[in-house]
């Protein structure tokens, strides 16, 4: 295809991505180097019968004007990256100096906002992704064994958790696990503990969010694996049976290797999607005990008063770097494949 034709075809799509994805990244980089203006203070001498007092107050008009003239704020260099809300250089150094052992160090660092968010994001990503693969595979095997006429309805019902809006799905579960909801109340009855609440303890909140994550994504893995099972090599399976392989050996040595490329695909997509975990934290109202990187950016942008653009941008940059590190092995592999083909 001549370059000119190619450009004509790709232009709308490329422009959209350039203006609304690439340019915003530049904007994020720039914003992350700036910080909100400090309020303009004026000092006035106030003289009364008991002598003069110096009082300072915020000059609202001047502050507003300054904000209007320089909406970016003032230049802060890498200051925002290193402050307590982000990489917290000083706090980490202190923790390193004072900590009694590695566990103490991790606990101290883990209570800093960014590391807390990173901790949950990574824990969520690396717990949910493998569980989704396992559950999806099990559902695919079980559905595959069902008689033909029930498969359709079963697949229909199985798709629902995936197709549902994440925020809505998490709200639905949130209401059910409410202390007065069906699951919450049943759990209280089951453990005979009227104070049991899935929302109160951080650990239980983490587990709830992860259960939601698996519930939401397992159908995706199931559908992909199920389609993979339809293309199983029959000859290999039959010869494995003739050679005396039992059911588990057949799954282990024939089915799993056949599904491996699909598992890598699902795992990759899940890695990307779980790393951006956000809606369930809003839906489950779990911000107090579990924050993710995306959630931290969201709260900065929605913070009451003025949005904290600098802080949100710095967290965004760190998130983008994080996802690039996570994706690096995949990108390298794609590049090698490409070079082999050309």
């Amino acid at each position: 295809m001549p370059h000119r034709t190619f450009i004509a075809f790709i232009l709308p799509s490329a422009l959209a991505m350039l203006i609304f994805i690439a340019l915003p990244i530049v904007s994020v980089v720039v914003q992350s180097l700036f910080i909100e203006h400090e309020r303009v203070m004026v000092t006035a001498e106030n003289c009364g019968p008991f002598g003069c007092k110096k009082e300072s107050h915020v000059d609202e008009a001047a502050t507003a004007e300054l904000r209007r003239d320089q909406p970016l704020g003032r230049f802060n260099g890498l200051g925002t990256y290193l402050d307590r809300k982000h990489l917290a250089a000083k706090e980490v150094r202190e923790a390193f100096a004072e900590a009694s052992g590695p566990i103490d160090f991790l606990t101290r660092v883990g209570s800093l906002p960014l590391y807390k968010a990173l901790g949950f994001t990574l824990a969520y990503t690396f717990v949910v992704t493998p569980l989704v693969l396992i559950l999806g595979f099990m559902i695919a095997l079980a559905v595959n064994a069902l008689p033909y006429f029930v498969k359709g309805p079963v697949i229909f019902a199985s798709l629902l958790p995936m197709i549902i809006t994440p925020l809505i799905g998490s709200l639905i579960l949130f209401w059910m696990i409410d202390a007065n909801g069906i699951i919450g109340a049943s759990l209280q009855a089951l453990f005979n503990d009227p104070d049991l609440s899935l929302k109160a303890s951080p650990t239980l909140t983490w587990i709830t969010l992860m259960v939601y994550g698996v519930w939401h994504s397992a159908p995706f893995a199931f559908v992909v694996f199920y389609a993979g099972l339809q293309t199983l090599p029959h000859d290999t399976l039959e010869s494995a049976m003739i050679d005396g392989a039992n059911r588990f050996e057949r799954i282990r040595f024939v089915v799993l290797p056949h599904l491996m490329p699909l598992a890598i695909f699902v795992g990759l997509i899940q890695l990307m999607d779980n790393f951006r975990v956000f809606e369930p934290i809003v839906g489950f109202n779990a911000g107090a005990s579990a924050t993710s990187l995306s959630y931290a950016i969201y709260t900065d942008l929605r913070s009451t008063g003025a949005p904290l653009f600098g802080s949100a941008a710095a967290t965004s940059m760190l998130t983008i770097i994080g996802i690039c590190i996570l994706m690096a092995p995949v990108l390298v592999r794609t590049w090698r494949d490409f070079k082999r083909r050309h």
Binding site: P24, I25, F278, S294, A313, S316, I323
Partner: peptide, 10 residues
């Protein structure tokens, strides 16, 4: 792969 919200802050 990029979380959408990172773009939003841009």
């Amino acid at each position: 792969a990029m979380p959408h919200i990172t773009l939003l802050s841009g």
